[in-house]
Amino acid sequence: MQRKLAWIVQFVFATMLLSACVTINIYFPAAAAEKAADKIIEEVWQLEDEKKEEKEEKEE
């Protein structure tokens, strides 16, 4: 019984040790990320411009 428990503990430990060594790297293309960021910034500026125009229209 003790041997079986020892094997199970060793197996679990070895599995945890091996899984801890796995690294997942995700690479994003820089050009695509920059293009997406520019698009988001443009959309934000457009929204801000629209809000300013609405505010000016209300004040008039």
Rank of each mutant, 00 (worst) to 15 (best):
Q46R: 15
K35G: 07
I8K: 08
F11I: 10
E60M: 07
W7D: 14
K58N: 10
K58V: 05
E42V: 04
E42G: 02
A30Y: 03
E56G: 03
F11T: 14
E50F: 12
A36W: 12
E43R: 13
A14D: 01
D49T: 14
I41K: 08
L47T: 09
K39C: 05
W7P: 01
W45E: 13
V22G: 01
E59N: 10
I8N: 02
I8F: 07
A30W: 02
V9D: 02
L47D: 12
V44P: 03
I8Y: 04
E34G: 05
Q46S: 15
K39R: 13
E60K: 06
A32G: 03
E43P: 07
K52Y: 14
A32H: 04
K55R: 10
Y27L: 09
M1A: 10
K55S: 08
A36F: 12
V22Q: 02
M1C: 05
K52W: 12
K52M: 14
E57Y: 08
V9S: 03
D49C: 07
D38N: 10
E60Q: 09
K52E: 15
A36N: 15
W7H: 14
A31G: 02
Q10G: 08
I40V: 15
E60V: 07
E42L: 02
A33F: 10
E48S: 08
L5D: 03
K58P: 01
L47G: 10
K52L: 15
I26S: 06
K4V: 04
P29A: 11
D49G: 05
K39N: 09
I40M: 12
Q2Y: 04
A31W: 05
E56M: 10
Y27Q: 08
D49W: 07
E42C: 03
W7Y: 15
E43T: 14
M16Y: 04
Q2M: 09
A33Y: 10
K52F: 13
K39Y: 08
E53T: 12
Q2H: 12
T15A: 15
K39E: 13
E53D: 12
R3S: 12
E59A: 11
A31E: 15
L18C: 13
A14H: 00
K35A: 14
A6R: 02
D38T: 05
K4P: 00
K4L: 05
W7V: 09
E56C: 03
T23Q: 09
Q46E: 15
C21G: 02
E34Q: 11
Q10I: 06
R3N: 15
E54N: 13
D49R: 14
I8H: 03
A20I: 00
Q10S: 06
W7C: 12
L5N: 04
E48G: 00
K51M: 10
K51L: 09
A20K: 00
F11P: 04
D38M: 04
